[in-house]
Simulated assay, not measured.
Amino acid sequence: MISRRNIRVKVMQSLYAVDSMNEVKPGEAQSILTKKMEQSRRLFIYLIYFITETARYVETDARQRASKHLPTAGDLNLNTKIAGNELLWKIIENSNYIAAINEIKPEHIIDKELLKKIYQSLTESEEYKEYVGIAARDKKSEKDILEFIFNTLLLPNESFINHVEEHFINWDDDAEMMQQLVLNYLQKSSIYDYKEIAGKDKLDFAKSLLQTVLDKKDITMEMLKPKLKNWDADRIASLDLIIIQMGICEFLYFETIPTKVTINEYIDLAKEYSTPQSGQFINGILDNIHKELSAENKIHKVTFKNSTL
């Protein structure tokens, strides 16, 4: 589910949290990483839940309309096609999804008034009218209407984002990742495991990268310090130092990750999470260290299929 880039962000954030502590207990860094992964897992489940509840609100709407004192013909014949959306039911009948919902209990935090307003926006949209206007069902249209709820009605909705931020402190960090995860999920919902946000290989990579950076800090800083002689050390962002240490560790201790991938990934992370000048700074330092290590024949990479992921 989660990509290696997302993993790097989680590790970077965990290292930054550790760096900010006066005292770090044994195993605390790994606990921080585990907590961050769990926060992402719960956020992902909640987003899927909100999408499904928006689609299923038509059932509530139909019941309320039919129970009016004087229901109109339209009230009694509300088009409830979306309630039978085949992808929707594939999701909500999945035993793993049911277990996840029972575990995190999203019904306790959902804003029912907000849910109703988003449902009303759905029914007023041309996309929805076109969807219910066709009796036939096909996989594409069933998926497209759920994607429409997420992409058009939820993500740009300030009230929805405020609601999510209120309950999930990791939204700002995970928003871009979640958008991709949810869209990927709607493409292939059956292959997702709600128990973990990352598969075993990626989880092992996360734990290994975190521990390696911590264990090899003296080595990486020894390589790094000579490269900082033309820089004011006090003005170098601590996050930049962490990113460089991560990059050096990937050069030396992760033999299946090409050095070019490492450099590009950490330049992007620096641009996104650190200062405006950090991308250029990281690029220069990592490129310099990479050339030095290569000249000393200290970088040994093994080529495996999909090793660039």
Rank of each mutant, 00 (worst) to 15 (best):
M1L: 05
I2R: 04
R4L: 09
R4N: 10
R8S: 03
K10S: 10
V11L: 05
V11S: 09
L15T: 03
Y16S: 13
A17Q: 14
V24E: 13
K25C: 06
P26W: 01
G27F: 00
G27T: 05
Q30G: 09
I32C: 05
T34S: 14
Q39K: 11
S40F: 05
S40G: 08
S40D: 12
R42M: 12
I48Y: 06
A55N: 06
R56G: 05
K68P: 03
L70P: 02
G74L: 11
I82H: 03
G84A: 09
G84N: 12
E86N: 13
W89G: 06
Y97L: 04
E103T: 11
I104Y: 02
P106F: 02
I109S: 08
I110K: 08
D111G: 03
E113L: 04
L114T: 00
K116N: 06
S125Y: 00
E130K: 14
Y131F: 04
A135E: 13
K139I: 03
K140T: 07
L146P: 00
E147T: 06
T152H: 08
L153N: 00
L153M: 00
L155W: 02
S159H: 11
H163E: 13
E165L: 13
H167I: 02
M178L: 12
L181E: 10
Y185N: 01
Y192V: 01
D193I: 07
Y194A: 01
I197C: 02
A206V: 02
L210Q: 08
D215M: 10
E222Y: 15
L228I: 05
K229N: 14
D232H: 09
D232K: 11
A233D: 07
A233T: 13
D234H: 09
I236N: 02
S238W: 08
L239P: 00
L241I: 14
I242T: 10
I243V: 11
I243F: 05
M246H: 13
M246Q: 13
F251E: 08
T259E: 09
T259L: 04
T262R: 09
E265R: 13
Y266N: 11
L269E: 05
E272T: 07
Y273K: 10
Q277N: 14
S278T: 05
S278Y: 04
S278N: 05
F281E: 01
N283A: 09
L286R: 07
L286D: 04
I289Y: 10
S294Y: 05
N297L: 08
N297R: 10
F304I: 15
F304L: 15
